[in-house]
Amino acid sequence: MNAAIALIISFPAVLLISLLFEGIDRKLHARMQKRIGPPVIQPFYDLIKLFNKGRVIPLTASVRVFEIMPMIAAAVSLLGASILLSGILFGLSMIGDLIVVMYLLAMSSIALMVGGSASGNPYSAIGFSRKMSMMIAYEVPMFIAVISVAFGSTPSLAIDRIIKFQANLGLPLAASRPSMSLAAAAFLLCMPAASSAIPFDIPEAKTEIIYGLLVEYCGPYLALAKIAKAASNFALTLLASIVFLYIPSLLWENAPLNSGISLSLCLTTALLIMFTTMTVPRTILARLKIGQALKFYWMVPLTLSLSSIILSAAGL
């Protein structure tokens, strides 16, 4: 019961923070391009405007699927982020919630894929096939990295056990052993693709396929899709920050779990991770083609995560 209440409380908090994160990302991106950029709360303005717009559903769409999928996408990615946040705030955790969060985040992408391709637009069809290839490219190394973490810490799949493990160790997991560093590197390399930022925004490349899956979405549906994206980006960065780089563990012996300070430290780390894995790449790189992206993901992060699992099995 408590868990349910905590989750419900953290829902609006997650929405707020994830949109702020998006705003900060846009501002930093603009500053690096010598632009003034939008105000940090621009995503809120965008959402308010989008929710007030009319709904347009293309004639070719299968209406139910097209309407429901953005809602599912927004709901599951918000839920995934709230599980993480309430995990830090209230120390709530359950067996296997690491897998649940990863599943919810993948689910949100899949929901958008299904909804977008239900629009009947040929660009969405291309976006669908590209997103499919991209998910195969980044989800595999990402999951292997997570599994390697689960083996490498206690072993456990519960997030609070992993946090406690780091707190007892007095070190973030990524710095504890070579296998964990490799897993962290693989996970972080997968982040730009998971957040579909340039250079891996291939499924929604606007100059090529006009936002692909999102091409027919407008008004409230687009707002929901944007929430889904912002929340899942936030969840990814937060996950990376608490599983791999739990900074509070450096500061105190047996760092307190559910305090405001450790939460704010985690959020700062998450912000830094977002800056390095999403904002900087999308500022300094050009978009790759789908074949090039696949090649990169199968060559580098997959090798890293596989070697991490082998090392971790060898006890390193």
């Binding site: 391009q33 340039i198 999308r282």
Partner: peptide
């Protein structure tokens, strides 16, 4: 051209 290949920063720089 930079915009077409998704390199917005270069696009902004050149137009600047």
């Amino acid at each position: 051209m930079a915009y077409e290949i998704g390199f917005d920063t270069l696009f902004m720089f050149i137009w600047h």
